[in-house]
Amino acid sequence: MEVRTIKVFTTVDNINLHTQVVDMSMTYGQQFGPTYLDGADVTKIKPHNSHEGKTFYVLPNDDTLRVEAFEYYHTTDPSFLGRYMSALNHTKKWKYPQVNGLTSIKWADNNCYLATALLTLQQIELKFNPPALQDAYYRARAGEAANFCALILAYCNKTVGELGDVRETMSYLFQHANLDSCKRVLNVVCKTCGQQQTTLKGVEAVMYMGTLSYEQFKKGVQIPCTCGKQATKYLVQQESPFVMMSAPPAQYELKHGTFTCASEYTGNYQCGHYKHITSKETLYCIDGALLTKSSEYKGPITDVFYKENSYTTTIK
């Protein structure tokens, strides 16, 4: 009895394709271990004539594949690729409408935090270190965002349907971005203890939790000093293409032309909904596939993004 075979390709990165001759009487799992086709788990399936010449994702289970996976995804987590594939199996079914010149995501599976993050990423200057993220990001900007969303979920250790947080998501993504040249110098002034300067680099240099107003941050924000008295913390120097200011959701007025974009969060910790506000020729609110415009805006804002380049204080 002759062994019926077909020729397929296996890959971990969709760049390096490895030619395989597979036995049609055995499952993919018996031949390769966990195997995925377009995100779908085909591990328990036997090869079919229609699979001839198709590319299958496999887990990096030998040295060659491990090197290829690390170079593309910059992670050695053995569960990463499987999590990416199972997320992709959902995100490829989502709709990605162009809204006001940006790629958004039609609401499904509690994905409003991903839509808000995706919209924000198209408006701030950011370059990702893992080629996987950078490639998928370019495709997302062009309207094909399924891979990018699935990668975000995998890097953030999230599953489809789980509630997510924009600030946490951005923080994970910033860790995989090139923020080497970003720098922030802060000064804390206390009447009792004097003053202390701190220099922050990388992710810490672009994120701040405690106030939404970048102007206020430049002037000074009140913080408790270690001595128990009130101290003032203010920005001395900022070198970065953008800054992200966050605070627990509270009524906040966004003035046209003073910011790049913002995240609105309605609801409580267990259950809520994100919308995205962007400042173009007027203010726009993007909620999944829905767009509304207004000249002014007041609502429960939790993150505001500002364009920056270089700032030095005039406070002496």
Rank of each mutant, 00 (worst) to 15 (best):
7 K>D: 09
8 V>E: 05
9 F>N: 11
12 V>P: 07
15 I>G: 00
16 N>Y: 08
18 H>Q: 08
32 F>L: 12
33 G>R: 04
37 L>I: 11
43 T>K: 10
49 N>R: 13
58 V>S: 07
59 L>Y: 14
61 N>C: 09
71 E>F: 06
72 Y>V: 06
74 H>N: 09
75 T>V: 08
77 D>M: 06
77 D>T: 06
81 L>S: 06
89 N>K: 15
89 N>T: 11
95 K>R: 11
97 P>Y: 06
97 P>A: 12
101 G>Q: 06
103 T>F: 09
105 I>Y: 02
107 W>E: 03
108 A>I: 07
109 D>T: 05
109 D>I: 03
114 L>E: 04
118 L>N: 05
119 L>P: 05
124 I>H: 01
129 N>K: 11
130 P>D: 04
130 P>V: 07
136 A>E: 13
143 G>W: 01
145 A>K: 04
145 A>Y: 02
146 A>Q: 08
148 F>D: 00
150 A>I: 02
162 E>V: 03
164 G>C: 04
164 G>W: 03
166 V>C: 07
168 E>C: 07
169 T>I: 09
170 M>Q: 01
172 Y>T: 12
172 Y>G: 07
172 Y>N: 14
176 H>G: 01
177 A>L: 06
177 A>H: 03
178 N>Y: 04
179 L>T: 03
181 S>Y: 12
181 S>M: 14
185 V>I: 13
186 L>Q: 14
187 N>W: 08
187 N>M: 14
189 V>P: 03
195 Q>C: 09
197 Q>G: 06
197 Q>A: 07
199 T>G: 04
201 K>F: 12
201 K>M: 11
203 V>L: 10
203 V>C: 14
204 E>N: 08
206 V>N: 01
206 V>S: 01
208 Y>I: 09
209 M>W: 15
214 Y>H: 02
216 Q>P: 00
217 F>G: 03
218 K>M: 05
219 K>L: 12
219 K>W: 05
221 V>S: 05
226 T>W: 09
229 K>C: 13
232 T>Q: 08
236 V>Q: 07
237 Q>E: 11
240 S>H: 01
242 F>K: 01
243 V>N: 01
246 S>M: 04
248 P>D: 07
249 P>E: 01
250 A>T: 15
254 L>P: 02
254 L>E: 00
255 K>I: 15
256 H>G: 11
259 F>E: 01
263 S>P: 01
263 S>I: 12
264 E>L: 06
270 Q>E: 10
279 S>T: 09
289 A>L: 08
290 L>E: 14
293 K>M: 11
296 E>C: 13
296 E>I: 12
296 E>Q: 12
297 Y>I: 07
300 P>M: 14
301 I>L: 07
302 T>P: 01
308 E>H: 07
308 E>C: 09
313 T>M: 15
314 T>A: 12
315 I>T: 15
315 I>D: 15
315 I>Y: 15
